[in-house]
Design a binder for these strands. Structure first.
Lengths: 207, 207
DNA sequence: TGTCATCTGTCAGTGGCTGCCATAAATTAC
DNA sequence: GTAATTTATGGCAGCCACTGACAGATGACA
């Protein structure tokens, strides 16, 4: 059962403890009003150790959504090659939301807590956006690979860029705060995907 | 001629001097390797004064592109109301590029220097992106006003989001470094706008 | 049990950024 | 032209995010 050794498990435990403590403190007294020392103290760890787990104070708040993007990429890679790029991206996104709805409640709650915090904190929102951009490059690479074209081609850029627009508008226009909000969010996502489909010419995302 | 008083002119002068010194130092020895003290010293100003002109070290590098977005917004507001939103956005963008091509050479060079620096510095690129998002909200508001709908409606979000995608892909796929590169950039922009037009159904951005 | 790799705490230090107060310069009022 | 007022600047003390280096603690493994 315990595949990873004691050391690994301990590390994962402190990592989660740091995230939880940080999220709670940030939500309670504000992001910038909270110091790293406070977070470290709450977990009974030295401030230096905090920075061994997270490169910056921002990272501890963003780590969960960043992980989510990793999942998105894996899901995309698992989609069949016949699917047109935009369709594949849509299904990958649906899979991520589904996992959020059906997965471990504790994790989901943590994730939503992080998203709420990020949306209500300009500095974190900015950070979140720029990491999405980072991830966008990887999505482009994956789409280019699927379609057998160069990552420098205009089309994969355009497809991914348009898709992330859809995803972003989804989050912006419907802020899921609890597990109960997730179905509404999923529905909202469908609305926007439908709007996109209505707006675009059939076959626009291929060749 | 000298509409603004001596005080105002002096301030503008130090502001530009700080930007120039900062850009040169950043390009010469790297962004993070350059300290605010160095920039201040180069302009013979106290470090404290630097922070009276720019809230952060990042700001001095991003101020020019941020000003550019301001121009974009003004141009958009000047477009006739009959134009469909996406067309109006396209023309506003063209106007900005044209102003860049025909305006003061010194200013244009400064602007391009800033863009080059930003694109080659991850931290600055991240900051740049998140400010674009800030601006995106204002573009959405303007489109909503033009179209007589609510800024919360899906359509203006979608239109603007898609347009900024186009703009971003334009910059990413063609990095104008000197004034001579600008025509090529303008052409690239046209290509992407054409691609977008080909991909979208007529009338998609209205009603 | 002992050796080794890895994690952790301590400490000293850099650099971004701010509040505060005194001074100097430009603007305005007289 | 001078005095009064506003506004920009410099210097200083200090907070906090973040880092490198070293020493001690703690799992891993034989």
């Amino acid at each position: 059962m315990s595949q990873p050794g004691l050391r690994e498990r301990k590390k994962e435990k402190t990592r989660l403890a740091l995230i939880d403590a940080a999220l709670d403190l940030f939500l309670a007294q504000g992001y910038e009003a909270t110091t790293v020392d406070q977070i470290a103290a709450a977990v009974e760890v030295s401030p230096r150790t905090f920075f061994r787990y997270f490169a910056t104070k921002e990272d501890v708040a963003l780590s969960l959504p960043v992980d989510g993007q990793e999942v998105m990429l894996r899901e995309l890679a698992a989609r069949p090659a016949e699917e047109p790029p935009f369709v594949a991206l849509g299904h990958a996104m649906r899979a991520v939301v589904a996992e959020l709805q059906n997965g471990d409640q504790t994790e989901t709650r943590r994730f939503l807590k992080a998203r709420e915090l990020i949306e209500s904190t300009p500095a974190l929102f900015a950070g979140s956006v720029s990491r999405m951009m980072e991830n966008e490059r990887r999505l482009i690479a994956e789409i280019a690979r699927r379609e057998g074209c160069s990552p420098d081609d205009l089309l994969p850029h355009f497809v991914v860029s348009l898709f992330t627009s859809v995803a972003r508008v989804g989050f912006e226009s419907c802020h899921p705060r609890t597990v109960e909000d997730l179905p509404a969010f999923a529905e909202r996502l469908e609305q926007i995907l439908a709007l996109a489909e209505r707006s675009l010419r059939p076959g626009w995302d291929r060749v």
